[in-house]
Nucleic acid binder design. Structure first.
Lengths: 338, 338
DNA sequence: ACATAGATTGTGAAGGGTCACATTCTCAAT
DNA sequence: ATTGAGAATGTGACCCTTCACAATCTATGT
């Protein structure tokens, strides 16, 4: 509270106090080798007594580099890779600025946000863009000349990106059910304008059809528990019968488990259930949930590593890096009882 | 890909093209009223053809204001207020920079992070600090002269802050169980170095003792599902018996429900369970969970409103703003079957 | 003793804006 | 015709660094 509110010390103040030039102070701060031990200590002392902190704005202006990375995220409910991104950004010496663009945002609004940040002197951005609302090209165009990495665009998208192979994940899940002997398999998919959800759904349909099985027992959910609940209720109300259920993600699986139970169906005796994600709680569902694990920490890390390398190493090849989900078998699946 | 990589246009370039002074361009950009309609349009045209974007670093340097708010968070697993913070920060014209400080971080590490950001020309910070590792005074000291708001420090802390009244919340939960007729009540608390967890725990103990009831049926958890599971197992293994269970948060409640079931105890027939938070999924637990709702959106919003007001309105009074949790009754509680 | 390379230090000019102030212009009132 | 207020525009200094280069110092080899 006793703020003396004296203006913050500058390079020149420090230089003056230490009896050297401002350039020398700058050298000390930036750990330039060619400074004699003696002067370095004088300068360090002056910095200490003046409680000097370099002014980043000036530094950014002079160098053109801000050491800030912008994360554009379309829905904070799906921010699983965030902790890892934060961790690795910091590890590489970058701060993370976060913006959320509502997936239902108008083109203008999105544009405005993106415009805004290009002026912020940002070194690069990660766009976590599982929604199909904007095309990847469009997004790339919007952020102009800045280095960027897309997290989770379409498999095969021709741009610097890191993705999970959702087809592979869906295949693991469905094959598991088929191997157990299930033939009547229903699905509560995620929202189909969500890339991941769509790919899983398409894989489901394709695989079922390839085996001559009914692929029509499918309803669209919203990736949240209530959506999973309602999806199952819808399926059952249409008098569909099935011995296994593929659910778009774990949160919906939670709602689905609840709905099945509410309708007197036992899991896994009557219906096997497979989720997607392997959230921490999945091992504590009732029953514990068989699911497809996605390593979001790896995703976050790869994004940052890749982006930093694009920023700092000029000739980094632009490619798509693919991560593969894994099946985690628990109690919610077993062979059909018939 | 066809990057012409021409240097970005500056104020002077625009001025030159529009045939006016740079100051006039500045006025147009900052929507200063005294610019004739005619010149404004000329300038706007020039801005457009040059694809000019103001350089924020220069602006920050000149004005001393960055319109950035830093969020210090101690564990991203507890980032419930984040979406609201992001939303309101943007609404007020601020970007949000996020840093996580591991609660187990050494004093030095924390200091370093905080030092670092004071140089980043940040206008203010929100410190979401439910951990007791650093004292509030210490934190306030670390971020020096910058305006700040603490989210979730101790009730009564003498500093600008927004908190939930955890005692009130715990009272609601416990009173609900008492009203139902429970007398043998156990607790799986959150980690006790977490302020919220500690306050809830202390309230539990105090209330039980005030009524001459056994307050020793308590074990410490970690706020995650596995911790809830293990907590219940521990209580049962010690041959404690209870008809009701207070759990430190919903995630642990999920593990607790699982453990009770695994041990053959039915909820709510044999044991009633109350959680804390009211996460979206709580209504889909098996059974649906009675819990104490905390309005994290309100918390996030209040923090931002308050901080922005401190930044922009010099004589904003420094106070603590208190939010009150509410009880949400669902299926996991009922009177004991004695 | 002296040239020379290498280490150390200093100088001037950006970098791209804002601010305070000075100047010019416009137009109504005297 | 003259004054003056207010609108519109321009000028110079400053914000705090870094960069490229120039200048000085030091120690080494001959």
């Amino acid at each position: 509270m006793a703020e003396s509110q004296t203006k913050r010390a500058t390079l020149h103040d420090v230089a003056h106090l230490a009896g050297v030039s401002y350039q020398t102070v700058s050298r000390v701060i930036n750990k330039h080798p060619n400074v004699s031990r003696n002067t370095r200590e004088k300068v360090l002392g002056a910095i200490d007594t003046l409680d000097y902190r370099p002014n980043q704005a000036a530094k950014i202006l002079a160098t053109g580099r801000s050491h800030m990375i912008q994360l554009i995220i379309f829905d904070l409910s799906y921010s699983d890779p965030l902790p890892a991104m934060l961790y690795w950004a910091r590890k590489f010496g970058y701060s993370l600025v976060i913006s959320e663009i509502n997936p239902r945002a108008s083109r203008n609004e999105a544009q405005e946000i993106l415009e805004d940040l290009t002026s912020r002197m940002i070194d690069g951005l990660v766009i976590y863009t599982p929604f199909l609302h904007f095309s990847h090209e469009e997004l790339a165009e919007m952020c102009h000349h800045l280095p960027f990495v897309m997290a989770g665009p379409e498999l095969g998208a021709k741009m610097p990106s890191v993705v999970f192979d959702q087809r592979h994940g869906a295949r693991l899940a469905l094959q598991h059910l088929l191997d157990l002997g299930h033939r009547c398999i229903a699905e509560v998919s995620g929202p189909l304008q969500h890339i991941d959800a769509r790919m899983r759904h398409e894989t489901f349909v394709a695989m079922m059809q390839a085996r001559g099985l009914d692929s029509s027992l499918s309803t669209e959910g919203d990736f949240e528990a209530p959506g999973g609940y309602e999806g199952v209720i819808r399926l059952l109300d249409e008098h569909k019968t099935f011995t296994a259920l593929l659910v778009g993600n774990d949160r919906m699986a939670m709602g689905a488990l609840h709905a099945l139970r509410a309708r007197g169906l036992r899991v896994p005796e009557d219906v096997s259930v497979v989720g997607f994600d392997d959230m921490l709680e999945a091992a504590y569902f009732i029953p514990t949930l068989t699911t497809v694990r996605q390593d979001f920490d790896a995703l976050g890390r790869q994004c940052m590593e890749y982006l930093v390398s694009i920023i700092e190493t000029p000739d980094t090849p632009l490619q798509q890096r693919v991560l593969y989900p894994e099946l985690v078998v628990r109690d919610s699946t077993r062979p059909p009882t018939s």
